[in-house]
Amino acid sequence: MLEQLEQLYQQALAEIEQITDAESLRAWEIGYLGKKGSITQMLRSTGQLPPEQRASFGKRANQIKLDLTAAYEAREKLVREQALARDLEEGQVDVTLPGRARPTGGLHPSTQILRQLYAIWAEMGFQVYRSRDVEDDDTNFTLLNIPPHHPARDMWDTFYTTTPGVILRTHTSPGQIHAMRDLGGNGTQPIRVILPGMCYRYEQVTARSEMQFHQLEGLAIGRSIRMSDLKGTITAFAHRMYGAHAAVRFRASYFPFTEPSMEVDVECFLCGGKGCRVCKYAGWLEIAGAGMVHPEVLRNGGYDPTVWSGFAFGMGPERMAMLKYRISDIRYFWQNDLRFLEQF
């Protein structure tokens, strides 16, 4: 029996030397050391031996079991190391194969620009105030110092509805009247708001002009709002939007609801001001119209223009997106072609 044990021991040692994979090693362990393994069975059969042999056999068998367990553990470590080495050496994939596609969602580019504008203006204390799309003629024009038939109305091609005196707003400026009357406390409270919204113009749709577009208007009313504040505020905005070193230029212009009025240009960020096709070789890109709120408009909003003053500005998110992302055709915005939307 002892001989048999010794023979089994030698056999087990010889076999394990040959093992190189985890599966064979596991089979070896089960075969010798498992519950029904041959060494385990030998140990269990100690009781069948004559009593005088039992102690020495048991001692030897236990010793062999410990040795084999140690051999197993050593081999197991070796096999694991070898497998790791093999995997590291041979387990390659073609890393140039494309990844598994993940479906993604995304915001419309106009929404993205609007959010950027909300964030920048919020930092400067301007909150979002929204008003309606379908307006009365008074709020869209007359209260903004554009009386009926006034030549200034030529600046807006208007969609009229079949309800007399009701139009689609041509700009977000009627929101100025709503905001002043709503938030101004009858001309007693300062205001700082931005007014985003969809606007409509009776214009043929081409690559360069749309019948529907967003505007974002701004309005600040206070007891000491000055044109220098308008310049400083717009410049601060431009530095956040177009970079801390963007040059800004203010040109005199005309809007009936502001005076002085101005157009705001930023140095072309596509060519660095050297002149390119997009800036029409002028080196400047128009980014906003602005001005000091006209006294008539302040009055119509409930404010005394000899005490209160304010500034207003307006910008076009689609135009900003077109410049930022080099979008060549404004019609892309509302066509919702997924090939376009998936680029944002």
């Binding site: 206070g222 709002i225 504040d229």
Partner: peptide, 14 residues
Amino acid sequence: YDRIPDTMISDQIP
């Protein structure tokens, strides 16, 4: 317009 300074609003915050 370029000779008018750039300032930040000093008016009361609404």
